[in-house]
Protein backbone atom coordinates (compact mmCIF):
# COMPACT_ATOMS: atom_id res chain seq x y z
CA UNK A 1 0.00 0.00 0.00
CA UNK A 2 2.68 2.45 1.11
CA UNK A 3 4.75 1.51 -1.92
CA UNK A 4 1.89 2.34 -4.25
CA UNK A 5 1.43 5.76 -2.68
CA UNK A 6 5.14 6.46 -3.05
CA UNK A 7 5.04 5.34 -6.66
CA UNK A 8 2.02 7.56 -7.26
CA UNK A 9 3.77 10.56 -5.73
CA UNK A 10 6.89 9.93 -7.79
CA UNK A 11 4.79 9.73 -10.94
CA UNK A 12 3.04 12.98 -10.02
CA UNK A 13 6.36 14.74 -9.51
CA UNK A 14 7.68 13.45 -12.83
CA UNK A 15 4.55 14.56 -14.62
CA UNK A 16 4.77 17.94 -12.95
CA UNK A 17 8.31 18.48 -14.15
CA UNK A 18 7.52 17.21 -17.62
CA UNK A 19 4.70 19.75 -17.65
CA UNK A 20 7.06 22.56 -16.68
CA UNK A 21 9.56 21.49 -19.31
CA UNK A 22 6.89 21.45 -21.99
CA UNK A 23 5.68 24.85 -20.92
CA UNK A 24 9.18 26.25 -21.17
CA UNK A 25 9.54 24.84 -24.66
CA UNK A 26 6.22 26.33 -25.63
CA UNK A 27 7.18 29.73 -24.28
CA UNK A 28 10.55 29.66 -26.05
CA UNK A 29 8.86 28.78 -29.31
CA UNK A 30 6.44 31.62 -28.83
CA UNK A 31 9.32 34.04 -28.33
CA UNK A 32 10.95 32.71 -31.49
CA UNK A 33 7.74 32.97 -33.43
CA UNK A 34 7.20 36.55 -32.26
CA UNK A 35 10.75 37.40 -33.20
CA UNK A 36 10.33 36.02 -36.68
CA UNK A 37 7.33 38.30 -37.09
CA UNK A 38 9.43 41.31 -36.20
CA UNK A 39 12.21 40.08 -38.44
CA UNK A 40 9.90 39.89 -41.43
CA UNK A 41 8.97 43.53 -40.94
CA UNK A 42 12.57 44.61 -40.41
CA UNK A 43 13.59 42.89 -43.66
CA UNK A 44 10.68 44.54 -45.40
CA UNK A 45 11.96 47.90 -44.24
CA UNK A 46 15.45 47.09 -45.46
CA UNK A 47 13.98 46.31 -48.86
CA UNK A 48 12.01 49.54 -48.93
CA UNK A 49 14.96 51.82 -48.21
CA UNK A 50 16.80 51.46 -51.57
CA UNK A 51 13.56 52.07 -53.46
CA UNK A 52 12.89 55.13 -51.38
CA UNK A 53 16.40 56.50 -51.95
CA UNK A 54 16.18 55.74 -55.67
CA UNK A 55 12.88 57.58 -56.03
CA UNK A 56 14.00 60.55 -53.98
CA UNK A 57 17.40 60.95 -55.64
CA UNK A 58 15.98 62.47 -58.78
CA UNK A 59 14.34 65.24 -56.77
CA UNK A 60 16.85 65.82 -53.99
CA UNK A 61 20.15 66.54 -55.69
CA UNK A 62 21.82 68.31 -52.78
CA UNK A 63 21.12 65.95 -49.95
CA UNK A 64 23.93 63.50 -50.42
CA UNK A 65 24.70 63.20 -46.69
CA UNK A 66 21.13 62.26 -45.88
CA UNK A 67 21.21 59.47 -48.42
CA UNK A 68 24.57 58.27 -47.22
CA UNK A 69 23.38 58.22 -43.64
CA UNK A 70 20.35 56.13 -44.53
CA UNK A 71 22.32 53.71 -46.66
CA UNK A 72 24.93 53.26 -43.96
CA UNK A 73 22.33 52.79 -41.25
CA UNK A 74 20.59 50.23 -43.42
CA UNK A 75 23.70 48.15 -44.09
CA UNK A 76 24.61 48.26 -40.40
CA UNK A 77 21.12 47.11 -39.50
CA UNK A 78 21.30 44.29 -42.03
CA UNK A 79 24.64 43.14 -40.64
CA UNK A 80 23.56 43.14 -37.00
CA UNK A 81 23.37 39.70 -35.43
CA UNK A 82 21.97 39.47 -31.92
CA UNK A 83 18.70 41.00 -30.80
CA UNK A 84 20.55 43.62 -28.75
CA UNK A 85 22.71 44.72 -31.71
CA UNK A 86 19.69 44.75 -33.94
CA UNK A 87 17.64 46.97 -31.69
CA UNK A 88 20.47 49.50 -31.62
CA UNK A 89 21.05 49.41 -35.38
CA UNK A 90 17.36 49.49 -36.21
CA UNK A 91 16.93 52.42 -33.85
CA UNK A 92 19.57 54.26 -35.86
CA UNK A 93 17.83 53.43 -39.10
CA UNK A 94 14.52 54.68 -37.70
CA UNK A 95 16.21 57.92 -36.68
CA UNK A 96 17.82 58.33 -40.11
CA UNK A 97 14.50 57.73 -41.85
CA UNK A 98 12.80 60.23 -39.57
CA UNK A 99 15.36 62.89 -40.48
CA UNK A 100 15.00 61.98 -44.14
CA UNK A 101 11.25 62.51 -43.97
CA UNK A 102 11.91 65.89 -42.40
CA UNK A 103 14.08 66.87 -45.34
CA UNK A 104 11.45 65.63 -47.77
CA UNK A 105 9.17 68.38 -46.50
CA UNK A 106 11.27 70.84 -48.49
CA UNK A 107 10.57 69.05 -51.77
CA UNK A 108 6.90 69.40 -52.69
CA UNK A 109 7.44 67.80 -56.10
CA UNK A 110 8.73 64.66 -54.48
CA UNK A 111 5.80 64.61 -52.10
CA UNK A 112 3.41 64.72 -55.03
CA UNK A 113 5.08 61.75 -56.71
CA UNK A 114 2.70 58.79 -56.70
CA UNK A 115 5.49 56.29 -56.44
CA UNK A 116 6.92 58.07 -53.46
CA UNK A 117 3.54 58.30 -51.77
CA UNK A 118 3.06 54.56 -52.14
CA UNK A 119 6.51 53.93 -50.67
CA UNK A 120 5.78 56.30 -47.82
CA UNK A 121 2.58 54.45 -47.02
CA UNK A 122 4.47 51.17 -47.02
CA UNK A 123 7.16 52.61 -44.78
CA UNK A 124 4.65 54.02 -42.29
CA UNK A 125 2.80 50.75 -42.20
CA UNK A 126 6.00 48.73 -41.77
CA UNK A 127 7.10 50.89 -38.88
CA UNK A 128 3.70 50.53 -37.25
CA UNK A 129 3.90 46.79 -37.69
CA UNK A 130 7.35 46.75 -36.12
CA UNK A 131 6.05 48.75 -33.18
CA UNK A 132 3.02 46.52 -32.68
CA UNK A 133 4.86 43.23 -33.00
CA UNK A 134 7.61 44.55 -30.73
CA UNK A 135 5.03 44.87 -28.00
CA UNK A 136 3.97 41.25 -28.33
CA UNK A 137 7.56 40.07 -28.55
CA UNK A 138 8.64 41.92 -25.42
CA UNK A 139 5.64 40.63 -23.49
CA UNK A 140 6.44 37.06 -24.40
CA UNK A 141 10.13 37.57 -23.54
CA UNK A 142 9.16 38.98 -20.15
CA UNK A 143 6.95 36.00 -19.45
CA UNK A 144 9.63 33.54 -20.57
CA UNK A 145 12.40 35.20 -18.54
CA UNK A 146 10.21 35.26 -15.45
CA UNK A 147 9.59 31.56 -15.81
CA UNK A 148 13.30 30.86 -16.16
CA UNK A 149 14.21 32.83 -13.06
CA UNK A 150 11.44 31.66 -10.78
CA UNK A 151 11.29 28.52 -8.69
CA UNK A 152 10.58 25.69 -9.45
CA UNK A 153 10.79 26.19 -13.20
CA UNK A 154 14.32 27.59 -12.89
CA UNK A 155 15.56 24.11 -11.87
CA UNK A 156 14.36 22.65 -15.12
CA UNK A 157 15.52 25.68 -17.08
CA UNK A 158 19.07 25.42 -15.71
CA UNK A 159 19.42 21.73 -16.27
CA UNK A 160 18.11 21.87 -19.84
CA UNK A 161 19.94 25.01 -20.94
CA UNK A 162 17.07 27.45 -21.34
CA UNK A 163 18.68 30.88 -21.52
CA UNK A 164 17.08 34.25 -21.12
CA UNK A 165 16.06 36.12 -24.24
CA UNK A 166 16.83 39.75 -25.00
CA UNK A 167 14.25 42.52 -25.23
CA UNK A 168 13.87 44.42 -28.46
CA UNK A 169 13.88 48.13 -27.63
CA UNK A 170 14.07 50.91 -30.15
CA UNK A 171 14.93 54.22 -28.59
CA UNK A 172 11.76 56.09 -29.24
CA UNK A 173 12.99 59.45 -28.03
CA UNK A 174 14.72 60.53 -31.22
CA UNK A 175 12.33 58.76 -33.50
CA UNK A 176 9.13 60.18 -32.16
CA UNK A 177 10.16 63.69 -31.36
CA UNK A 178 11.71 64.70 -34.65
CA UNK A 179 8.58 64.52 -36.80
CA UNK A 180 6.55 66.32 -34.16
CA UNK A 181 8.33 69.58 -34.86
CA UNK A 182 7.36 69.73 -38.49
CA UNK A 183 4.01 68.01 -38.61
CA UNK A 184 2.35 69.45 -35.55
CA UNK A 185 0.13 71.65 -37.65
CA UNK A 186 -1.37 68.74 -39.52
CA UNK A 187 -2.83 67.04 -36.47
CA UNK A 188 -6.57 67.11 -36.53
CA UNK A 189 -8.56 69.59 -34.52
Amino acid sequence: MFGWILLGLAAAVVFYFVGIYNQLVRLRNRVKNMWSQIDVQLKRRHDLVPNLVETAKGYMKHERETFEEITKARSRAMGAGSVGDKSKAEGNLTGALGRFMLVVENYPDLKANQNFLALQEELTSTENKIAFSRQGYNDSVLFFNNKIQMFPSNVIANSFNFTEEEFFEIEEAGERKVPKVSFSESTES
Partner: peptide, 17 residues
Protein backbone atom coordinates in the same frame (compact mmCIF):
# COMPACT_ATOMS: atom_id res chain seq x y z
CA UNK B 1 -0.64 57.96 -25.92
CA UNK B 2 1.44 58.06 -29.06
CA UNK B 3 1.93 60.97 -31.41
CA UNK B 4 -0.27 61.41 -34.43
CA UNK B 5 1.01 59.83 -37.61
CA UNK B 6 2.46 62.59 -39.71
CA UNK B 7 -0.14 63.13 -42.37
CA UNK B 8 0.69 64.75 -45.68
CA UNK B 9 0.04 68.41 -45.83
CA UNK B 10 -1.81 67.94 -49.08
CA UNK B 11 -4.32 65.76 -47.33
CA UNK B 12 -7.01 66.82 -49.77
CA UNK B 13 -5.10 65.25 -52.61
CA UNK B 14 -4.75 62.17 -50.57
CA UNK B 15 -8.47 61.80 -50.30
CA UNK B 16 -8.78 62.43 -53.98
CA UNK B 17 -6.45 59.54 -54.67
Amino acid sequence: IREATPEDKNAKDDKKT
